[in-house]
Design a protein around this nucleic acid. Structure first.
Length: 577
DNA sequence: GCCGTTTTCGGCCCGACTGTTTTCAGTCG
């Protein structure tokens, strides 16, 4: 059992406790489960490995005591926790879905269940529409409206998965499939290959010598919940996390055609088929044909070439001008992961990170990075243990000291300074000037009116020490919409002041999004791509940031953290003298 | 349920915001 599966069980237990409130100490127990969940989720080693090692103890993991260690062992051995199942049996399972709704927490869920016997999102929606919620204590017409809005957001998100979930699941499945010897090649296609921020289902293309055997092997994958279809060329399953996976068993000779077809997008493929048709040909998942004659099908390159086009990177295949660009020979040469030379947003134990400055620096160095920018939170973000002025000064000193300990990488002192409600910054200029690079971002009051938010951002950008605007829209994928503001005006101001926009590569944000990256690119603006790492293993999330930049047509020259350190510093907004 | 120690129990992150209040409860991060 993977760490995140254990974490998911603990999270559910915590939620169940908050709803049930059976135990007099439920708040603290639930908090303990929450802590354990977070701890496990980001724990760098596999719990299974620790459990198996006689010299190690699960209780050495922070937040795990005797009891939770036992529950983890039970989960690893049996795949279940009796305690979890007992709690789960006390309420309808669909009640937990309500927690996904914004403005609805465990207390409200409890209230709706106890008072109105509401057991699911559907029932809650019906009750809200019938005006039955407004009479409950603490509820009104307004809160009823908010719940309907939240349900709309929820339905929109349902059935889609974050890019990292899809990516990691695909990796696990590919590894599983490759354990079956006759399998030769496994390639994820679909929106995952195109790098979309969310993925509806996984398409895996498999070549090999024994299709029926491969199908048999595949459905034995431990994560499979139900088998939806099992035919000669295609197997569909639903995984326990609800993700649907379609495995297509292919003939090697037509692999390129299938890869092209199943990568999509639909719009891109329609345009390509149209192009083939105008030449009197036919393009399908089986190849490019002139009558019965095969023109191309072995590789994607051959198919595109036959259609008079260079190969088009999957990230661009949305029929948003890439075919025209390919035709004219003006396709961008997209930025690549290996171009990245440093990471410019990360947190340490000083605020809410899990590793020290030195540990982060060492890990970055291992990746071949030439520089990092340490950006712990400022004091307004109390929950993240943001640094007040005194601690910030001390922290800068520690960062300078770290340079003596970890050589061979530039360690820059920065901060993720909060943009306060009125657009002022959380630190005074006299402190800001002591940082090498100041990054600013919004973490509070995200529901203000667009006009107010725009003014807030514009005011923040005016501060001469501000050089990077972090996660500019504040969105969280499948969770929270971008806050309302006038993007054009903010881009104008950033461009005027020389403030660089961050593409936050954390897969829960990807902010700027692909469309906004394109917008910035088309205006000739540069970006930086960061991971917002809270632990060394988060550096690998850079791949999602780069993918999103590629979807925004970004070239290496548009991404400043592809530059060597001195050139990067010279490209940022000049500091006041 | 964890943790630390004033060592086997008592305290547990906490401030901002929203929407409901008329002094507060619930949610969020």
């Amino acid at each position: 059992m993977e760490n995140r599966e254990v974490a998911a069980v603990f999270e559910e237990i915590s939620n169940l406790m908050k709803i049930l409130q059976d135990d007099p100490k439920w708040t603290f127990k639930a908090a303990a489960y929450d802590r354990a969940k977070r701890s496990i989720e980001s724990y760098p080693e596999r719990l299974e490995d620790i459990a198996r090692d006689p010299n190690r103890k699960l209780t050495d993991i922070p937040g795990i005591g005797e009891d939770l260690a036992k529950k983890i062992s039970e989960l690893i051995e049996t795949g279940q926790s009796r305690y979890h199942q007992e709690q789960l049996a006390k309420i309808p399972r669909s009640l937990l879905d309500l927690l996904q709704l914004q403005t609805v927490g465990p207390q409200k869920v409890r209230l709706f269940y106890k008072e109105l016997n509401i057991r699911s999102v559907d029932e809650l929606e019906a009750a809200a529409r019938a005006g039955r919620l407004r009479n409950l204590p603490g509820m009104s017409v307004k809160s009823e409206e908010n719940i309907l809005k939240a349900i709309e957001v929820f339905r929109h998100a349902a059935g889609r998965f974050r890019l990292d979930t899809a990516f990691e699941t695909a990796e696990e499945l590919a590894a599983w499939l490759c354990e079956f010897k006759p399998v030769e090649q496994v390639t994820p296609a679909g929106s995952l290959r195109r790098g979309r921020e969310t993925v509806g289902d996984l398409d895996l293309l498999v070549t090999g010598r024994d299709h029926p055997g491969t199908a048999e092997h595949f459905v034995k994958f431990p994560g499979v919940a139900t088998i939806l279809a099992k035919g000669e060329d295609k197997v569909s399953v639903k995984l326990k996390n609800d993700l649907q996976v379609d495995v297509r068993l292919l003939d090697r000779s037509a692999y390129g055609a299938a890869l092209q077809y199943f990568t999509g997008s639909k719009e891109h493929n329609v345009a390509l088929r149209d192009r083939a048709k105008r030449r009197g040909w036919k393009l399908s998942e089986y190849g490019l044909f002139h009558g019965d004659k095969v023109l191309a099908r072995r590789t994607e390159e051959e198919i595109y070439a036959q259609l008079g086009l260079p190969w088009i990177p999957p990230e661009l295949r949305e029929n948003l001008g890439e075919i025209e660009a390919a035709e004219k020979g003006t396709l961008p040469k997209l930025v690549e992961l290996r171009d990245i030379r440093g990471d410019l947003q990360m947190h340490t134990t000083a605020s809410d990170g899990r590793a020290s400055i030195e540990e982060m620096a060492e890990a970055a160095k291992q990746l071949g990075y030439q520089y990092i920018l340490i950006t712990d939170h400022s004091k307004a973000v109390t929950i993240a243990n943001g640094l007040d002025e005194k601690r910030a000064v001390e922290h800068i000193r520690r960062i300078h000291a770290a340079r003596q300990k970890v050589k061979g990488i530039e360690i820059w002192a920065g901060s993720e300074v909060d943009i306060l409600g009125d657009g002022r910054l959380d630190y005074p200029d006299v402190l800001l000037k002591q940082f090498d690079i100041v990054l600013v971002s919004v973490h509070s009051r995200m529901t203000m009116l667009a006009e107010e938010m725009t003014a807030r951002l514009l005011r923040a950008l005016e501060n001469p020490y501000v050089r990077i605007l972090g996660h500019p829209t504040g969105r969280q994928i499948l969770k929270r919409d971008p806050f309302a503001f006038d993007l054009e005006k903010v881009l104008d101001a950033a461009q005027r002041h020389g403030v660089i926009l961050e593409l936050n590569g954390s897969p829960e944000r990807l902010d700027l999004c692909d469309r906004h990256v394109k917008l910035a690119r088309d205006r000739g603006m540069k970006i930086i791509i960061s991971t917002d790492a809270h632990a060394p293993e988060h550096f690998k999330l850079m791949r999602y940031g780069v993918t999103t930049a590629r979807r925004g047509w970004m070239e290496k020259s548009g991404v400043l953290n592809t530059l060597p350190p001195q050139k990067l510093l010279a490209s940022l907004r000049p500091l006041p003298r």
